[in-house]
Write a protein that binds this DNA or RNA. Structure first.
Lengths: 192, 192, 192, 192
DNA sequence: TATGAATGAGTATTCATTCAT
DNA sequence: AATGAATGAATACTCATTCAT
């Protein structure tokens, strides 16, 4: 149906506009008026697709999180050895952060900002479930330290956000070599 | 000078008010009017001490960063062995994040947000100089991996922000035991 | 004709929805969108039956006025003595205000509000013609004071609006006893 | 103090502007922007003097009610006979409605509209206390019917609103002669 | 130094109305 | 006849900033 597709496109345009504006200037710069203008739509139209600004941002968060997960678990073969599996996911995640800097930077902003409802945040977490499973398996196999997944996340996934941030600000270039170095650090910190 | 001190107190009150408001609700909640009210001062008075809102936030950033550094290098004896030195600094930093959650959470927000001028950010970096020196020494002594300080920071200091964040949201309790575990992870990732 | 009747039903539903909304919150609460929703109809559909919002309200006014008149002159036998006739009409009107509080309260709002076109108001007046005739007869018979019908209306019909208003706000209960008292007051004021 | 007076003037100008706009077009026409413009003030300034629109309207209501009462009980000598007293008050009230048509018409709108908080309405009532006292005295003296003050009000005071309304719409001229006629009707309806 | 009053431009959101289908 | 989608203009209200005192 042409109509439905047009609808979907418009919603996508709104999400994209929001993403872009939040990225360049934080929430304060992402006014509904600007979002509408950037999406080439009337302000009133936003409210056909989203309940209010918070809903718009929540939905943006979830949609980006979903994209992130999709990339993270691409080509993921859970039968491979734990380290191999983890490396695959880790590199996928890094690739996402490299290839989609706006999406990635947005997620970083969300992490430390009261921008997203706690409830929505929890919803976003479930996308990472396969990673948590993998860690459990690694621990069962005695390969990964027996510690909270929060610690595992903090020392393997979270640091890449910082690196990509520095990369985006052109303070520190993250190329393939650095990436493999980084994975080494991540693995060193959690392996038994 | 009683007058000068009163001035300093007022400025401090304004910074504190700003910190508090930004922490509970992000920049969007920290309007000049609210800041003034919380600091028991007229809105116009803010402009005696700060050029504008951006300047206020920048100065807040630098003052918090300075406090952070002061705590980080407390009791720091640079003659001690590298690992000992690093542990001292690392634990100091962790303590800061535990004891001053508002200040620490504010710094986290600043990290991934276009809230602070790039220039001001750089100024904030110099406070951490002793840590960078220590890492250089560690690398010279062959104890720490020969990699960019950005990587070292990403895998040793940055993760604690995540942990404290989770702690603040009551998702993961960070006690002394966890803290020492965390330091272990940090060290494992960068030691040769 | 099934089709025509469906049309009439829809129009009636729209009028009823408007009535209800205006009553609970005044015009400001009766947006076209809300009216449409309450009538289970698309906003665009309203414009098939009414030219615009003002027309909708005008038509509502006239339809309610018509209902009012229908009740007011129910069982009206113009051969009876004047006082008897008047009492009949007066009690009918009071009954309408009791039994149809929404309609009645709406008419009250219209009375003192620039909600209704002057022209439409005049149209509404004609429904009351039999009452004016009765008064003329009463005056010819020397039973009713020789004064303007506006005065007669002000002191016999208009007061009931106030009483019903107080009743609706639960400030003053208007039961049958009060009603007959009220009629007595009305009659006392205009009788010769 | 010149400053204080300027403040009071501005508040008065805002109240007056609101009164005028509500009178010509109802609440819907009295937007904050229009009120500000008519009072020659920025929209933001309104909020220095009033909490929000509802507060503005409530305060307007109370201030008009107060003026009304001031006029109503002018030259009121409570030692005079009941009828004389009542006539004095009644004529004062009528004079108010004649001389201050905007204020009077506004009060009429308030009567039948969900424009004013119930609480504020009650506050407005106390201004009329002396009238209620007088009625009680009249009842004690056996001059006025032993009925609820709501009935007394409905048949003596309330009708004038209708008359003035008609007068304002140029449908029925209310001159001095009519006024005395009207008082006669009022008195006839409540006297024993 | 310190302020309360003032503001124009901006905020998120809703409005009555239209139009392609 | 009926609609869902769309909109520019309006809504109440807040903003960062200024200025006379």
């Amino acid at each position: 149906m042409a109509k439905l597709q047009k609808s979907i496109q418009k919603k996508a345009a709104l999400l994209k506009a929001t993403l872009h504006l939040i990225n360049n200037g934080g929430i304060q710069e992402a006014s509904m008026a600007k979002i509408a203008k950037l999406a080439a739509v009337s302000p009133a139209t936003i409210y056909l697709y989203f309940e209010n600004k918070q809903d718009l941002i929540n939905q943006l968060y979830l949609s980006v999180k979903e994209m992130y997960a999709k990339v993270a678990f691409e080509n993921y073969e859970s039968n491979n050895p734990v380290k191999k599996c983890f490396e695959q996911i880790w590199l996928n995640m890094a690739r996402f952060k490299q290839d989609m800097p706006e999406e990635s930077s947005f997620l970083s902003q969300c992490d430390n900002t009261p921008m997203i409802d706690e409830e929505t945040r929890e919803q976003g977490l479930v996308y990472l479930h396969p990673l948590f499973s993998l860690w459990e398996r690694g621990q069962a196999e005695g390969i990964i330290k027996e510690i909270s997944p929060y610690l595992l996340y903090a020392y393997t996934i979270y640091p890449t956000a910082f690196l990509m941030n520095m990369h985006a600000r052109e303070l520190f270039k993250v190329d393939n070599e650095v990436l493999h170095l980084a994975f080494q650090l991540a693995w060193d910190s959690i392996k038994v």
